[in-house]
Write a protein that binds this DNA or RNA. Structure first.
Length: 257
DNA sequence: AGAAATGTTCGGCA
DNA sequence: GTGCCGAACATTTC
């Protein structure tokens, strides 16, 4: 599920529920998503509470009352469930609150990551995470993009340039902006880059506002039409699929130039 | 049965 | 240093 809008929705869904409550214990499985030992995890969480939940790109940072952070990345299939009673399927980490509810980090494919870090800024630097796509200012966006030599789609997905955009939303932004995914960034003038910036903000905000319900997205969106030969929702073209950097890229050759 | 799926990282090569 | 490619990670779903 998770690109920026989905991770933001997870944050909204659980931040009010998982914060301010004493953590009575945790349980976890043996998958290699964990970048921290079970004992360290337990030591930092048990007896403490989460103060707040912050998102940067596709990462969530749970501020722990001892000053550290529980950092979650969701890979391709990560989710969060706040529950009571029966544990959700594919739970990898479960945080138990003493009032009775639990928070589960679930992941089918186990491609996510779980960390405990002391300093959020250091972590962001180490991971070379660029500014968040919903917070980056236009100036900063233009400067960063103008230094790139690659193609538009790859640049949008580059987490060190701008963080939060993945395969689906990079396609969506370029589709809405009418720019070919294979177009070199260098060939886009300031004006076109400015349009990409505006479109990026609009698309991501719309996705968050629609609560990730893809059926609720405007009809002219590419999401929901990600199939070869599908009718374009903007012009009379047909959707094409081509592999880019090992990922499948959907676009409309008719109106994306 | 085989392929595809919303991500990251690393080694290798130009 | 930058960009691009393929592979690896792991599992379910179509």
């Amino acid at each position: 599920m998770p690109e920026l809008p989905e991770v933001e929705l997870l944050r909204k869904k659980i931040s009010g529920k998982a914060t301010g409550k004493k953590i009575s214990g945790i349980s976890r499985d043996k998958s290699r998503i964990f970048q921290v030992s079970e004992s360290t995890l337990r030591r930092h969480l048990t007896g403490n509470k989460f103060d707040s939940v912050y998102r940067r790109g596709k990462y969530l940072f749970f501020q722990i009352s001892n000053g550290y952070f529980l950092v979650l990345h969701f890979g391709m299939t990560g989710e969060l469930e706040y529950f009571k009673g029966k544990e959700p399927e594919f739970s990898r980490l479960v945080v138990c609150f003493s009032e009775g509810h639990k928070l589960a980090y679930t992941s089918i494919r186990k491609l996510g990551k779980v960390y405990i870090v002391k300093d959020r800024g250091n972590f962001i630097n180490e991971k070379k995470l660029g500014p968040d796509a919903l917070r980056i200012k236009k100036r900063e966006f233009l400067t960063r993009m103008e230094g790139k030599r690659g193609i538009a789609k790859t640049a949008l997905m580059d987490q060190s340039l701008v963080s939060g955009i993945g395969n689906v939303y990079s396609d969506e932004i370029l589709y809405q902006a009418g720019i070919s995914p294979f177009r070199k960034i260098k060939s886009l003038g300031r004006k076109r880059l400015g349009e990409v910036y505006k479109t990026m903000k609009r698309v991501l905000k719309t996705a968050v506002r629609k609560n990730g319900e893809r059926k609720e997205f405007p009809l002219r969106y590419l999401i929901g039409r990600r199939r070869e030969g599908e009718k374009c929702g903007i012009c009379s073209g047909k959707i094409k699929n081509r592999e880019v950097g090992g990922r499948s890229c959907y676009y409309c050759p008719e109106h994306q130039k």
